[in-house]
Design a protein around this nucleic acid. Structure first.
Lengths: 346, 346
DNA sequence: CTGAAAGCGCTTACAG
DNA sequence: CTGAAAGCGCTTACAG
């Protein structure tokens, strides 16, 4: 007889379709006894909601969207995103909400997707990543009135709720550690300067340098690619008085930097300490293993999903959420400066 | 007035809703003149299809699904998948078909997702990856009668159409190259033995070893994790007569193996040649850069999407598609054996 | 607390 | 080639 519908259940249970709908959705409007009977029948018939019908009747699409804008030459979906996705889906699928994922070339294309999804009623809400300093997406999303949670901040996210970790505190923890080891010349291979978190990290480094009286502390912006990471590292290490420590904004760039150090005969950590702002398998498997900032990205994804679900129920009742600051995992790529080639190991 | 519907267009153009639907979907049933008028009106009103309504009225969900089953400890979504996704979406979104992506723990959970999606009418078709030798998913999908394209093969995919590249030929090209360099003892750090392509690679190595009269050619199965890749490499290199070349089934394992070689003071490529079966940023950025099998994974994704779309239109009219065999990109990690520590440097 | 009805925005036979 | 109508499977006011 094909898939059972609520009409079948209603007939079987001897009630109206409306009553079945109320019972199935846990709403008031049916007595406890009939509710249980209806649920039992639905179970017996192995009924499942038809997502399209539900979306048409109600006004929910039953899905939320996530668009990642990355130029093709960068790594694409990095370990960070795969962890985030898992965390998101763990929470969303428990509520039967699907996740629409899309990878596009740039912010313009990203905005187009939001407009299309909105007009096609594809999604009920959105997750916004890679927050920019002057972010054109914010105004668009406010205008579309699509419930959205921003991963990033604090600040620069307009009236949209944000889930954020403190990149400033994180950067300070790195610099404090390096300074404690004795480093006085620290370089920072930053990501895209348009990103909000890039600016916060750069600013934190400047502030820390002043406070600690460092001899040098420079941030070099890049496009996050391994190519620019390698090129910038080469330039830094070719200087007369080169930095004794480099902080990389991504694990991919950090690994590329490690390769350049090997290529130029600069020992790590003997002559150069390396810290990655992102932790992942990459940071662990290279040699020497990289000291890196670790965080529970899976849990972060779950947190974002919960905030978004709350926003769907009550767009006005949602507050910004601060998540734990990433913590430094020390491995083999950091040491006091100037140990020289003696410590080069292996 | 809210979003325009086909009823609005019909009123404005002075025709029936049915006529509008035909015109908008490029079907016969309206004259050329009225078709053009309708399209013009739709354009003026900035009409967009409501995906749920379309799914309910027709019987299409407007989406296809891809489930990736990976235990949490492996890298998750690898570069391979991100490329594949991009290729899939490039073709699918041109036809306004969404992609439902889900990451789960194991095959059992994966099958559950298929059953749920099927009964909820969430997707019109599926893409199946990581084909197994005895794959329980095949029978389930045949029974669900959900149009599905298998990425993998040839063989073992039942009545489902397959898009495949020849892993056997690919392995032979590696072994032939290593043998030509003079290697006589070759090891292969394979992936999960349950995977169809793992078996084909292992068998290809055995056959090549016999044909070439190699002294030793052993395949060691692993779970694809960096941990097992490292452990197995350690065991191989600790032997008396160790292999002079190791072929790794994934880039992550190859990088882990490279780390172990460094740790044990085995120079690459002087004392050990390393080849990765997967190419990616990882293979390029490490030092020495890894010789690897390259393929156009983006194009592969596009190909899979095209076959799936064809299967949606006509499930019976789809044939298996063979894609180009991956080709060896030689970098710095391979050399004739026994050059010894002299060539270590850099 | 419950039932009968209308409606969500499309698609698709079925008559003309 | 075209129009009027029914129907997809739900949800949600609106009466009782």
């Amino acid at each position: 007889m094909g898939r059972p519908t609520i009409a079948d259940i209603a007939r079987q249970a001897g009630v109206s379709k409306g009553a079945v709908s109320f019972a199935l959705n846990g709403r008031p409007g049916v007595s406890q006894a009939t509710r249980e009977r209806i649920l039992r029948v639905a179970e017996e018939m192995n009924w499942r909601p038809h997502s399209a019908a539900r979306a048409l009747g109600g006004s929910r699409a039953g899905a939320v969207g996530l668009v990642i804008a990355r130029p093709a030459r960068t790594i694409g979906v990095e370990p960070f995103f795969s962890q985030l996705l898992s965390g998101l889906q763990a929470v969303l699928s428990a509520r039967s909400v699907a996740l629409q994922l899309m990878v596009v070339e740039d912010t313009e294309a990203e905005i187009e997707v939001y407009r299309r999804w909105s007009s096609e009623h594809r999604v009920d809400g959105l997750i916004l990543v890679d927050l920019q300093v002057h972010d054109p997406r914010i105004a668009v999303l406010e205008a579309l009135a699509l419930p959205t949670v921003v991963l990033g901040g604090p600040g620069r996210h307009g009236s949209l709720p944000s889930v954020w970790a403190d990149d400033r505190e994180a950067m300070l923890s790195i610099v404090d550690y390096l300074a404690a080891l004795g480093h006085r010349r620290i370089a920072h291979l930053a990501g895209l300067p348009a990103f909000h978190h890039t600016q916060r990290r750069m600013r934190a480094l400047r502030d820390a340098a002043k406070r600690l009286g460092l001899e040098e502390a420079v941030s070099v912006p890049t496009d996050f690619s391994d190519a620019e990471g390698a090129a910038a590292t080469r330039a830094l290490l070719a200087r007369g008085r080169r930095p004794t420590a480099i902080v990389y904004d991504s694990d991919v760039m950090a690994v590329a930097g490690l390769g350049v150090a090997a290529e130029m005969g600069v020992s790590v950590p003997g002559e150069l300490s390396i810290v990655s702002f992102d932790d992942s398998v990459l940071a662990r498997i290279v040699h020497p293993a990289l000291t890196a900032l670790s965080r529970d990205t899976f849990a972060l994804g779950g947190q974002v999903a919960r905030v978004l679900l709350a926003a769907l129920d009550d767009p006005a009742g949602v507050r910004d959420v601060r998540t734990p600051t990433p913590r430094l995992t020390v491995r083999e790529s950091t040491a006091p400066p100037g140990l020289g080639r003696a410590s080069k190991t292996v």
